[in-house]
Write a protein that binds this DNA or RNA. Sequence first.
DNA 1: TGATATGTTATCTT
DNA 2: CAAGATAACATATC
Length: 270
Amino acid sequence: MQTAVKGKTIKSVEVKAPKLIRPMAVKDFQKQLRGRKILGVARRAKVLLLPLSGKKFLAVHLKLTGQLIYKSKVQNPKFKIRTGGEVNKFTRIIFYFTDGAKLDFNDLRKFGWMKILDEAGVAKISKEFGIEPLTKDFTLVNFKSAVNKYPNRKIKQILLDQKLIAGIGNIYADESCFCAGVLPTRPAGKISEAEMKKLYVCVKKVLKSALAKKGTSADTYLQLSGRPGGFLPYLKVYGRGGENCKRCGSKIQKIKLNGRGTHFCGKCQD
DNA sequence: TGATATGTTATCTT
DNA sequence: CAAGATAACATATC
């Protein structure tokens, strides 16, 4: 993302699904973006923030099935992973750049969105989220105070609460709990000092290694290039319900916790 | 074939 | 209030 779209100037924008930019009108969206240059790429929680020339920002949320796929003018190979890689019936918004490159926003389920924000808008969004696990703000002390804020909640629920800790999703919540040997169902208030520290380290470790592999691509997410991420083979519990634990061999359990599929090893985690 | 699940989250209902 | 269900939408899978 960083190197690919940075410096590109938007020539035009095609909006096939106006729902994804609501409440803004298609005409306004196009007018606001036309001629602006993408100055970089940032992120807050799961919201992508692209600073644009003229002090505006393009904010993007991929929700469950969003993809951003970039194509330089010289066509790159097509990838046939699920819905990704080429313009298809799930391509909802298309950005055309002045140099002939383009950027597709695909989203099968249309839960994702794009918004144009000013600096105040970015500040407002940013304030709604908790600490970022990959920054220096994520200290053990801060982590503990986030976890201890709701002692009755299950620990996984805390990990997924974007207002407390920003950016952890379902996969990485499960993987972090396994890494720490803590059941996702454990009440936050009953987590020992030692476990707290393990969890803290594990959240960072899991996110970092997943990032190093460019994400999981368990379902529809893809890299900007259209390629899948490479973290899938490294998952210990997520998506492995009924299979054997890689550490102890016993069966991985799958339950529903707060409406989310939740995976754990009953032997390695308690 | 119908029920269920899906890397998310805002908004209802209890 | 807070936990839990539901809804937004379109598939794939069991």
